[in-house]
Amino acid sequence: MCPFKGGNSKLRPAMMLAGTSFEHIKALIDRGIRSDYSFPKGQAYLMNTSDKARNSRATSFTQAAEELGELFPLQILAADYISERKDVLFYFTGLKKVPMLETLYFLPGALADHLTSAGGMLTDSPQMSSLRWLEAGATASYGTVVEPCSFSQKFPSPIVTMFQYALGASALEAYWKSVAWPGQGLFIGEPLAKPFAPHIEEVSPKQFMLKFFSPRTGHLRIERSFSAAGPFSPFMQQKTISRGENQFHFKFNEKTDGYLNIQWH
């Protein structure tokens, strides 16, 4: 999905497969693959740090908790860092250098970053490089490469990142959509990681399960047509969806029932 539509810019979102060795990059890709459709049960850690110059995102944390607290276990901590946690799915902070990363376990698909001036300078930064997040086990991160000043628009918005991830977006999509002014930044990680993407599997002959994650309540509609071009008509009764993980089972014969159009909103 491209956020740059129209015009002749021909710009496309990109994310660098970054690492200091082939082994590090392969491990990163493997984490991304393991995360797909996994619906991880991790925690979101939003750090209200003592570094006032780098803590500008903290003003949005209360809204994030109100909007997303029912989707992800979310902790707003008045601290500079966390340690000895084994359930990290999101970690957003503002520091020049984040200590104790080696004591954490990041779930496959985890997103983590620190708001500071030069995190995107991967190999020669006077501050902590964003590579340290990937080396610690995160699947994607972000950092700026030149002085951005403390404009929160130049860094990922935690509420947007988590909301887009919950919609089923990939790491690339979720991170790109969360940075209003990305011109000075660098996105790194496994771009196709999609832990909350919808998934259909055949659980037994002609019996299917649809599994998806939704940040909102709404309705599921499944329509059928005997032509791929339509028209489509209702295939089953409309279902109510809840916030968070949803599972629906339905019967479908791929040889005789035609094509399905599945929507939820």
Rank of each mutant, 00 (worst) to 15 (best):
F61Y: 15
F155L: 06
S38W: 05
F22G: 09
T49H: 08
Q127G: 05
G189H: 00
F72R: 12
A171K: 10
L74R: 02
P108G: 03
I200M: 11
L74Y: 06
A228T: 05
I76K: 01
T144E: 05
A18Y: 04
F252H: 08
L134I: 04
A197I: 02
L186S: 09
V88R: 00
L17E: 07
Q184V: 11
L107I: 01
T256S: 13
G143N: 04
A112S: 13
Q184F: 11
S21Q: 03
G183V: 14
G6P: 07
A174W: 10
F22D: 09
E102N: 15
L46Q: 05
N261E: 12
D124N: 13
R34P: 07
Y37M: 02
C149T: 11
K251C: 02
F4C: 05
R216P: 00
E173A: 13
T49F: 06
F72S: 05
L134Q: 06
K26N: 14
S157I: 00
A53C: 13
F252C: 11
R216T: 13
L77Y: 08
V146C: 02
S242T: 13
T62R: 06
P73Y: 00
W176I: 03
L260S: 12
E223F: 08
P158R: 04
R57T: 04
S9E: 13
A171R: 14
T116K: 14
R31Y: 03
N55A: 08
D113E: 07
A166R: 05
T93D: 10
L101D: 00
S225N: 13
E254F: 03
F226E: 06
I262A: 02
G183F: 11
E245G: 12
T49A: 04
Q164M: 15
T256V: 10
A14D: 05
A64C: 14
R216L: 11
F232M: 05
V146D: 07
E102L: 00
D36M: 09
H114G: 12
Y81V: 09
P205T: 10
R216Y: 14
G258M: 08
C2D: 10
G183E: 15
Q237I: 05
F187Q: 11
R12G: 09
F39M: 12
